[in-house]
């Protein structure tokens, strides 16, 4: 059921093929992500989830040998067009990484980093954004008294939420999350999952996870990838309850992966 087309698309992927040198990692994927919903990408390790995700903010450009074919439309505009400003693109498509990676700066500076690099200098705006972003990332109450302490003093879960706060501070349309909870303990994971539920009110979220319970808990739609192919895509409740594809079923029932 790869022809599932949700309403209000923000990001449309058309026949995307991705190569690491000569080896193809994504074999022609077509997928549409709806606005202000959470879409989970699941699949066994090495099936290309992260690769696909990185195509959406062109982080793959950093890999010298990479090559992309096909289209990724953000609001109808192909992000692989020559005219695309990568910096503007990454402002609209934020990213949270598997391993939390706060800068070795204060919590405050971490949050406003995106604003600073955009040339923003307004102190009042900084203060406001720091508060709203940290509140948005459900971190405010824990750190409001030590905003100017080093971010490296936070716990793992807090760091990851700080990274989320940092991503939402620039007000992106889409937030990409690559296994954001894989390095966290169950309690922190629960908090981040709760947070994702909150964030979907304002942001379109694409989350990679290989934890099916998590996908089931947080997402509205789920896409199952296997060996660089999109095997099945549909509303999460449907996909988990009634998978259309044998491979999907095998995977979610834990027969491989």
């Amino acid at each position: 059921m790869t022809d599932y087309k949700p309403a209000n698309p923000v990001l449309e992927v058309q026949d995307l093929r991705f190569y690491y040198g000569d080896s193809r990692a994504i074999h022609g994927v077509d997928i549409t992500f709806p606005e202000k919903q959470v879409t989970a990408l699941i699949g066994p390790s090495g099936c290309g989830k992260s690769t696909l995700l990185r195509c959406f903010n062109r982080m793959n450009d950093l890999i010298d040998i990479s090559r992309v074919e096909g289209k990724v439309l953000l609001d109808g505009q192909n992000i692989y067009d020559k005219s695309t400003d990568i910096i503007e693109l990454r402002r609209q498509v934020g990213m949270v990484f598997q391993k939390s990676n706060p800068f070795p700066k204060s919590i405050y500076e971490n949050v406003i980093y995106g604003l600073r690099i955009a040339g923003e200098k307004d102190k009042a705006l900084f203060d406001e954004r720091v508060e709203t972003s940290l509140r948005g990332a459900a971190l405010w109450d824990e750190v409001k008294d030590r905003l100017h302490d080093s971010a490296l003093g936070l716990s793992g879960g807090q760091m990851q939420r700080l990274c989320i706060a940092r991503a939402i501070a620039v007000n992106p349309k889409v937030i990409l999350m690559d296994e954001p909870c894989s390095a966290l303990d169950p309690k922190s994971t629960a908090r981040v999952e709760e947070l994702i539920g909150e964030l979907r009110k304002n942001f379109t979220i694409i989350i990679v996870t290989h934890n099916m319970q998590q996908a089931a808990r947080v997402s509205d739609n789920t896409a199952f990838l296997f060996e660089g192919n999109l095997i099945e895509y549909g509303p999460t409740d449907q996909l988990f309850v009634k998978p259309q594809n044998k491979q999907t079923e095998d995977y979610i029932t834990g027969r491989f992966g």
């Binding site: 903010n57 982080m59 950093l62 910096i87 503007e88 693109l89 990454r90 402002r91 934020g94 990213m95 990484f97 391993k99 990676n101 706060p102 800068f103 070795p104 980093y113 995106g114 690099i117 955009a118 990274c163 940092r166 991503a167 620039v170």
Partner: peptide
Amino acid sequence: VPNSLKAASLALGAS
């Protein structure tokens, strides 16, 4: 300097 920091910065739209 870990690549993850570089990636974090670039992903936020830094040159």
